[in-house]
Structures are given as C-alpha cells and as structure tokens.
C-alpha cells in the first residue's frame, strides 16, 4: 500500500529545505538578470559552481575561516561576471546566452578534469569543508522539530542561515527595484537604445546587474552545497534550466516569485517523485522501473517549462496587466 503520510511529509520538508532556499536565491539572481534587466544568463550554474568551490577550496586546502572563504567565493564570481560581460554585454542578447552557458561548461569541465585533482577533487569533488562554519552553530546537538520538520542541529543551522540570506537578498532586490537604479535597469529591459539616448551608461548598468545577480547565484551555490559535498556534476546546464523553470513559474520580474516558485517547484516535484516511486513499488505501473520513475521528473520539468512560457508567461506572482502588452 502507498504510504501517503511519507509522501506528504517529504513534500512538506522540501518547503523549507536549504536546497529550496538555494534554488530560490539562484532564481532571484536570474530575476535580476532576466526579469528586470533582460539579460539572458544561461550560466547561473557557473556562478553557483564558483560559490561552492570558491568556498570549499580555501576552507579545505588553505584552512581559511568561513568569512574569508565567503569573500573568496564572491570575488571569484565578480571576476567571472567581468570576463563574461566585457565581451558580450555590447552584443545582442542571444550572444550572452551562448557565451554564459559555454563559460559555465568550461568551469564545470575544468573542475571535473583529473588534471587538478589535488585541488578540486575532480569528479569526486570535495567534502567536509563545513567545519569552520559549524563552530558557530548555535543549535544544541540533537534531532528536534515539529510535524514533518524534524532535523538535526546541523540541518537547522544551515536551514536558518539559508533563509536569512534569501530574505536579505529579497529585501536588497526590493530596495533596488523601487529606486531610480531599478528604473534604469527596467528601462534597459524594455529598450536599451532608448535608455542610452537618455544619457545612461547602459553597459555599466548591465555589468552591475550581471555582477549582482551572479553574486546571488554564488551565495546560492554555497547554500546548496552546505548540507552535502561539492561535486562538479551538480553544476550541469540542466541546473540552470531548472532555476529558469522556477523563475518562470514564480514570475520573472517579481521579487517573491522566485521564492514562491522554488517552494512550489520542490514541493510538487517531491510529491510527484514520491508518489510515482511508491506507486511503482506497489506495482501500480508495471511498465515502469524505479530508475525510469526518477527520469519522469525531468520530463515533467521540461514540459512544465514549455507550458508555463506559452500559457502563463507572467508566472504565479507576475502582473497580469503586463500580459496584454507582452510581445
């Protein structure tokens, strides 16, 4: 028989899991890029990778304290944004898409190759880099919580930290987008030549947006790997596509959209995977194996991306009024 309690419980856990927070933050970064500025960054996985490794490598190999690791990750991300932005931000939007996805793949391959195994751990990645941060864990040891949300003190620590960062990032974005800076950014999304003709340095604003959204991606990368190990195969282009799915689901030019989108996405995905997997176990779908059940979720994500873009382009929280004017 199917254990519905476990399915709902697991889905409820996803509502607040650090992974959900990480995807929400990465999507918020993309909201700045794509939703507000109109930049097609398809290399968010690259920014996340730099966060993960930029934090883990100095922590493990150099023994740096957590704040220095954080700074090194953020610095790596700024440098990456500059390298991407300088050649492409003057070009048409689709060039940025191709270059960012290519650059993110270059990073993944460089971190996967055996050549740098001593530093990167190659395909096996790095683990146990969290010690420096865990020294500051205020939660007493043990497992506790309520309802389906019972975690050990380590998970509670990462979870609270993750959502605090997401909340701060959302607040920052909100402040920015209601300011004159945000007005220029949104103007660039609509027509960058018009904004240029009004005396704004469009190139500089796009770069600022690329760096800022990239930094969100970097922080998301750190949050994502905190409860696990850093493995390069996490950071495939599919990761970026999933983050796009979340962004579009929530609403591209909104601040709460990415957060709500991530929650809805992960809860539904967990519910769906849990149900299919247990249904296969119970023999409801004799034509399907457990492995196939696992692949079904990606098929579903793909179809969901298509349907959202076609039938619900404004997302869950987007402004319906805009819809009448979207090209």
């Amino acid at each position: 028989m199917i254990d519905w309690g476990a399915i709902f419980g697991n889905a409820a856990v996803e509502l607040i899991s650090p992974t959900t927070a990480a995807y929400a933050l990465a999507a918020l970064g993309l909201a700045i890029h794509f939703g507000f500025t109109g930049l097609l960054n398809f290399g968010q996985a690259g920014f996340m990778l730099l966060g993960a490794y930029g934090y883990a490598i100095p922590a493990l190999k150099l023994g740096w304290p957590w704040w220095a690791c954080l700074l090194s990750a953020l610095l790596a991300s700024v440098v990456f944004a500059l390298i991407l932005g300088i050649p492409t931000l003057r070009l048409r939007a689709d060039y940025l898409a191709i270059v960012t996805i290519a650059a993110a793949e270059v990073l993944r391959l460089v971190f996967t190759t055996n050549e740098f195994q001593p530093v990167t751990g190659s395909a096996n990645g790095l683990s146990e880099f969290q010690a420096g941060l865990l020294e500051f864990n205020p939660f007493p040891p043990g497992r506790y919580g309520f309802g389906p949300w019972v975690f050990d003190n380590r998970v509670w620590f990462f979870l609270v930290l993750a959502w605090v960062v997401v909340a701060l990032a959302a607040l920052l974005t909100w402040l920015l987008m209601r300011s004159p800076w945000g007005r220029v950014i949104k103007g660039i999304r609509e027509d960058e030549d018009a904004v240029r003709s009004l005396g704004k340095n469009v190139y500089s604003y796009k770069m600022q947006s690329l760096i800022l959204g990239g930094l969100f991606g970097t922080l998301a990368g750190i949050i994502f790997v905190m409860p696990r190990a850093v493995v390069p195969s996490y950071f495939q282009p599919t990761l970026t596509f999933m983050v796009y799915a979340i962004l579009l689901l929530g609403g591209a030019a909104t601040i709460l959209g990415p957060i709500v989108g991530s929650m809805v996405f992960w809860v539904l995905l967990s519910f769906f995977s849990g149900f299919i997997s247990r249904a296969v176990e119970a023999g409801w779908f004799p034509f399907m194996t457990q492995v196939q059940a696992g692949q079904l979720r990606f098929i579903l994500v793909g179809i969901a991306i298509m349907l959202i873009v076609i039938f619900m382009p404004q997302g869950l929280l987007g402004n319906r009024k805009e819809l009448a004017f979207v090209k």
Binding site: R183, K186, G187, R189, E190, D191, V195, L198, K200, F325
Partner: peptide
C-alpha cells in the same frame, strides 16, 4: 522607443539627468 512596461511617469523620470 517608449519603454512599454514602464509607466508613463517612470518613462519621464528616466529622462532626468
């Protein structure tokens, strides 16, 4: 080149130096 999804007022404000 009016900025379609900005309000008329935001369009105007964007013009200020």
């Amino acid at each position: 080149k009016s900025l379609a999804l900005l309000s008329v007022m935001d369009n105007m404000k964007l013009g200020a130096k």
